[in-house]
């Protein structure tokens, strides 16, 4: 399959990229890793007339902690997250997620920024970002704006990123001590989209009381979904098996999965509950470690 014709430029600076986006408006698409966009173009689900390839712009790929945030450059490849020592030692939820995204070759190309900007509820990073209460930095010729993750996903393939803007950085507040996080998705085969996926981040205060909780769901709603009621069911509580089971039930009740080849609604709700329970337990174990 060959995409419909388009024109192409690979700018060397963000400024040139912004100028191209302003010139071509919503006829242009940004090419990052390309592993969502190019398949869609081959299938004619997308036919942009212009591609702005941002792979040759330096300075968009990094993983570092500064000013209270873990900062990840938008063009950081999934493989770089997967193999980062900082990530595996301090943010294992990313290691959980990265190794479940597609396969090694795709992870060599796919970027964290693209995974979010594609706006697909079946992608894995959105749920992780919801759990970690990330902020997304979006840049244009007019400057930068910071979008909280809860205001980022608008609808199917729609995000807060406007046609003249480029997602440039993801910021995650560095969590306090006694925080644990975990992600897992149920998949039919390696590299599949999630039948159901759940990301959890928990912080324990004194006496083991849960002070913060973030829970994000993958492919269980038309947009990436925060399991708010489940979070509230944990906060202020000692995380007994009964409390955890109740929070997991709420996630199963509140999600809105649609039937497809991966399963019917009832099955996906059940799996949402199972995974939420398991990920709360795993995050709790990591918070105590």
């Amino acid at each position: 399959m060959i995409p419909a014709p388009f024109d192409y430029a690979a700018p060397k600076t963000l400024g040139e990229a912004f100028a191209l986006l302003e010139q071509h408006g919503d006829e242009a698409k940004i090419l990052a890793g390309g592993h969502s966009l190019l398949p869609m173009m081959k299938l004619r689900f997308a036919s942009p007339s212009f591609l702005v390839d941002i792979n040759n712009i330096p300075g968009l790929s990094y993983i570092r902690e500064s000013d209270g945030y873990l900062r990840i450059g938008a063009m950081t490849r999934e493989a770089e997250l997967e193999h980062s020592g900082l990530i595996s030692s301090k943010y294992p939820i990313f290691t959980d997620a990265s190794k479940l995204i597609a396969d090694p070759q795709v992870r060599n190309m796919g970027t964290i920024g693209g995974n979010l900007a594609h706006g697909d509820a079946a992608n894995d990073h959105p749920a992780v970002m919801l759990a970690m209460r990330a902020e997304v930095v979006v840049s244009s010729s007019e400057g930068q704006r910071v979008v909280p993750i809860d205001e980022f996903f608008f609808g199917f393939y729609m995000t807060a990123v406007q046609p003249n803007e480029i997602l440039t950085e993801i910021r995650i507040p560095i969590p306090p001590a006694h925080t644990g996080s975990a992600y897992h998705k149920l998949e039919r085969k390696v590299g599949d989209y999630a039948t159901a996926g759940v990301a959890v981040q928990l912080t324990l205060g004194r006496d083991g009381i849960c002070s913060h909780a973030g829970i994000g769901l993958t492919n269980l709603n038309p947009t990436p979904m925060r399991a708010s009621r489940s979070e509230e069911a944990l906060i202020g509580e000692k995380l007994t098996d009964a409390v955890i089971a109740r929070a997991a039930e709420m996630a199963a009740e509140d999600c809105n999965p649609s039937e497809d080849l991966r399963g019917d609604e009832e099955y996906k709700r059940a799996m949402a509950g199972v995974l939420t329970r398991r990920m709360i337990h795993r995050a709790l174990d990591r918070a105590k470690a």
Binding site: A10, L38, P39, N55, A79, V106, N108
Partner: peptide, 18 residues
């Protein structure tokens, strides 16, 4: 699958121009 700058990639999902 081929190697581009030492990294294995799927060449059906990369443009020649890239």
């Amino acid at each position: 699958t081929i190697l581009v700058n030492g990294k294995s990639i799927k060449s059906c999902t990369m443009l020649a121009i890239q």
